[in-house]
Simulated assay, not measured.
Amino acid sequence: MAVERTYIMLKPDCVRRGLMGRVISRIEDKGYKIVDAKMMHLTSDKLREHYAHLVDKPFYPNLEAFMMSGPVLAMIVEGENAILGMRNLMGATKFEDAAAGTIRGDFANTTTENLIHGSDSPETAGAEIKRFFG
């Protein structure tokens, strides 16, 4: 097993609904360590960079508007196999596919407003950590 760092973002709906503490507790209860965190407001430019693979999709304007609707909590999470472990803890992207016991399965009620983002590979984690933490 390898200690990894991954990028995790609690989205505006998570912040707005007062779920940050519950989500952070799940991350820490799983044995992961939050090694850096900051509240931030995302810009259109930053979102276009982050979601470059989605910018041409018809739903992108709604996604961008949602992600700019309030602050997010950006975090660097560290631990054994943190990338896959956090992906499992978050649950499926589509809220209706997310299993009970996962963050999205227990708290999300739409696919756009699905509470949390996490890197999907070591390469993506490195790029996202650099993008949001320098």
Rank of each mutant, 00 (worst) to 15 (best):
E49W: 08
K94C: 07
I24K: 01
E49H: 07
L47D: 04
G105D: 06
E49L: 13
E123H: 04
L42R: 03
K57A: 03
L47C: 07
G85V: 02
K11E: 13
D56H: 10
E123F: 02
Y51M: 05
T43A: 07
A2V: 15
A82K: 05
R48C: 10
V23N: 02
R17V: 04
K46L: 15
S121T: 14
K130Q: 10
C14G: 09
M75R: 08
E64H: 05
K130E: 10
A2K: 15
P58R: 05
M75Q: 10
N114W: 15
R17T: 04
N62C: 00
F59E: 08
N88H: 15
K38Q: 05
I83R: 10
K30H: 05
L42T: 05
D45F: 02
F95H: 15
R5L: 11
E128W: 07
M39A: 06
R104K: 11
L54R: 14
L10H: 14
V77T: 12
E113S: 13
M39V: 07
L54P: 12
G18Q: 03
D106G: 09
I27C: 07
R48S: 10
N62K: 09
N62E: 11
A92S: 13
I103T: 07
G21L: 00
R48L: 03
A125F: 02
G105K: 01
T110P: 01
E78A: 13
Y32R: 06
P12H: 00
K46H: 11
D97A: 12
